[in-house]
Amino acid sequence: MAKEGEKTPFWLYVIEDPMLLLFMGVTIYAVFYLLWGVMELSNLPPIPEDLKKSILGR
């Protein structure tokens, strides 16, 4: 807790607020792990045509 009469320091405010912590935890994880991962997986390229041609010979 902050000292009497002083403004609560920013980091103290952050670490004391359960809902803010929950929000940070969920957001960072959802964006950097889930969303980024899903986007990479859904944007995989197909096997290049010229590679297929060179193997299949047509």
Binding site: W11, I15, M24, G25, F32, Y33, W36, E40
Partner: peptide, 28 residues
């Protein structure tokens, strides 16, 4: 603060399980 760092950073470590896997790229 160390506990707060856990909340922020520990969850993305799930990526440890797909390090030798196809799919996601090196930056990820």
């Amino acid at each position: 603060i160390a506990f707060m760092l856990y909340i922020i950073g520990i969850n993305v470590a799930s990526a440890h399980h797909i390090l030798s896997d196809p799919g996601v790229g090196t930056e990820f």
